Each structure stands twice: as structure tokens, then as C-alpha cells.
Amino acid sequence: MGLVAWLDGVSKRMSSSSRIPARTLLSPDEFQQAALCERMRVDRNGSILSVLVIDLPPRLAAGDGSARFASSIEERLRLTDSAGRLQDGRFGILLPDTPESGAWKVAADLCEPYVPGSDRPRCEVLLYPNHEGDESDLAPVGDSGSGVPTTSPSEAFFALKSSPLKRVIDIVGASFGLFLAMPTLLLAALAIKCTSRGPVLYWQEREGLGGKRFMMLKLRTMRVGAHDFQGELRDRSEQDGPAFKLANDPRVTWVGRWLRKLSIDELPQLWNVLQGEMSLVGPRPLPTAESLQCAAWQRRRLQVMPGLTCIWQIRGRNVVPFDEWIRMDLQYIRRRSLWYDLVLIAQTVPSIAFGKGPR
């Protein structure tokens, strides 16, 4: 009997050790990291990712309702799925290699026990990338506050939030910068007005954080209507990829050449920083038409707020291949910190003074 009891104990221990451990929901930071990893996997292998976002109504979330719903999510997950809390408290489920219809099936299974009405969970499915076409994926889903539509909600989902301290530094730095730059801006505005026909300021639509579009402000350095002639000059661009750069652009006025050489034309973007559309440090925002031509992995640069300066501005301004430019932006995203921002700001002035290439 002793031998039988020992064998029975060994069998129970082996059975227990072979069980799959209970799944636990990821924290907001863990879930965000898992989502970014899944996005990179999709960019590499060309598959798809569905993200199911679930918002519990207050009555359902009260008491132990939220815990019970979390348990039902854990029971429904496949081994390849991940689930967790979002920063805003909602539930999120990552469903790799799952079409939109499959994600809605998961949503239906999770919500089946709840009576339709005010107490039923509210679900949303985001598909990355949207295989129905660029126009569908980039259709307006809101408004930026200035009449400029936002873009794909799936890209906005992957956007990374900046720290409150970074925003404080942006506001203080942009305010101080505008105060110091005001005499220079006034002189530049006078020179533009006296030497060429047209407005002093130039607004251009760019893509920013999460693909959100905004109007970036610059001093006008080209003659009026210059954009209409860009197609004729496209073959002469000195920058590969979707970006257009030309050192001796015939559309630039003689005053504009000096403003570009000293980067004075970029100073009005301090106003975009104050508006919260840009940061002092971050990937340079591309014109919308150029940004939409970027490959999926290149559009990961939109995960953070665009900025006045970044690694590319300092080390490779217009003299490196476009792919290398994007890798510099992704390097910044990996290394970003307040200290690193200060280092890049300190390196920007000498890079402008001694920089090469078209601007």
C-alpha cells in the first residue's frame, strides 16, 4: 500500500505541474508594451491585429462586477491573446491574426450573459492595419479643434503619452523662446513683406501624435503658389523616400534662403508647441501627403508628439537615406527621457550653425 500511495502522490504532482497557469490581466503599462510589440510583429510579417476595447458601465463595474468580468476575459483568452487594463480604466484584448469579425465574436461571447441595455458592456474593435484600404483607415473620426480631421483610430490607440513635466518644460521653453525670438521674427516678417508678394506666415497640414493632423506654422520662404509646382520638381529631390528636399529650390525667395539657412522660418512653430500640437523635442512632422506614403513600420514615428528638433536635426539633416532618418526617430522613441530632451536641445544650435544639406 505504501508503494501505491507514493505512486498516486507522484501522479497527482505531475498532473498539477502540467496544468496551464492561470492567466492574469496586464497592468496598463504592461498592456501598452504588449500592444507595441504586437504592432511591430504585424509590421514585420504582414499579418493583422484586432484590438477589442471594452468599457463597463458604472453599475456593472460597481462592487465585484469588474472582477467577475475580468475572470470571464481570462477564461475566454487563447494562448496567443493578451488582455489588460488601459490607462483610462477600460479593458483591452489583443487578438493576433484575428479579423474584425472574429473580434466581434469574442465581444459577443463576453457580453452574452448581460441583458441588452444600459448595463451591457460597450465594445469597440480596432483593426491594424485596416485592410479595407487607406481611405477607410484614414477617414476622419473627429476634429482637432482647428478644422483639421484626425486619422485612423487604430494608430491613435498606439500613441504614447508624454509626462506632465515634459509638457511643463514645453510651455515654459516655448514661451521664453517666443519672447526672445520676437525681435527676430518682426525683422523677418518685415523683410518678407517688403521683398515678395503674399502673406508673412504659411500654414501647412502635418501629421502629428497618433496620426492626428494639425496646421503647422512657418514664416513663408517661397513665392505664393509654390506648392503647385512641387510635382514638376519631384524628380530633382535630394531626399529619397516620400519626403521632398531640394537644396537650390527655385521656388524659394532670396530672403527665404537666409531664413532657412538659419532656421528662422521654423521659429513660429513655438506657437504650435504652446498649443499642444508639438513638443520642443520629437520627430519632425511630415506634410500629410508625404506621411501617408510612409510604410507601416515608418509610421511608428507617430507614436510620440512631433517636435522642433530631434536626432535627425542634429546628426543627419537631409544628408541620410529616408529609412535612416526614420530609424533615428525610432531611436529617440526608445531612449526618450527629460534628460535626453535637454541634451538634444543643447546640441541643436551648433547643428543649425554648421549643418549641411537642403532645409
Rank of each mutant, 00 (worst) to 15 (best):
S237T: 11
A139D: 01
Q275H: 11
S11C: 05
K161V: 03
M216H: 02
G102C: 05
L7I: 12
G173H: 07
D55C: 07
M182I: 07
E205R: 13
V281I: 14
S152L: 09
Q33V: 13
T288E: 07
L185A: 05
T253L: 07
P28D: 09
D329W: 04
L185G: 00
Q331H: 11
Q239A: 15
H131G: 14
M40G: 10
G9H: 12
L86P: 07
R39W: 08
L267M: 01
Q303Y: 12
I54A: 03
I73Q: 10
F157H: 14
V319C: 08
R260L: 04
S337N: 06
P358Q: 02
P287I: 00
L138C: 10
T150D: 13
C37H: 13
V168L: 15
V349Q: 09
A103K: 09
L52G: 13
P57K: 02
G225Q: 11
S154K: 00
P99G: 13
E112S: 15
R317V: 07
L330D: 09
T150A: 05
G65W: 04
L308F: 06
S15R: 11
N45C: 08
I311T: 05
G89Q: 05
M278N: 01
R300V: 01
W271Y: 12
G225E: 06
V42N: 12
P268A: 04
L190C: 13
G63V: 03
M40V: 04
R167C: 04
G208P: 08
A289C: 04
E132T: 14
R257V: 10
D109P: 00
E205Q: 08
V319F: 09
W254H: 11
N130Q: 15
D249R: 09
P306E: 07
P99W: 00
I169S: 02
S15D: 10
F214V: 04
P350L: 04
V349C: 09
G145L: 11
L262C: 08
Q33Y: 02
S136D: 12
I314A: 00
L286E: 10
T24W: 02
S101E: 15
Q239K: 00
C294R: 05
R197C: 03
D323G: 03
Q269T: 00
E74D: 14
A247Q: 14
I73M: 13
S11K: 03
P57C: 03
V273P: 05
V10A: 06
G89N: 11
I73T: 00
L60P: 01
R251Q: 08
A289K: 10
P57H: 12
R213N: 08
T24R: 13
A61D: 13
W6Y: 01
S163Y: 10
M215N: 11
P96L: 05
Q275R: 15
L233V: 04
A191G: 02
Q239C: 13
F214H: 00
G117I: 10
S152I: 01
S15V: 00
S71Q: 15
C37D: 15
A159M: 11
Q239D: 05
G256P: 07
D249H: 01
R213H: 02
L292I: 00
N45I: 09
T24A: 10
V125M: 07
L165Y: 12
R13F: 12
T221A: 04
M40Q: 14
Y114C: 03
D109T: 15
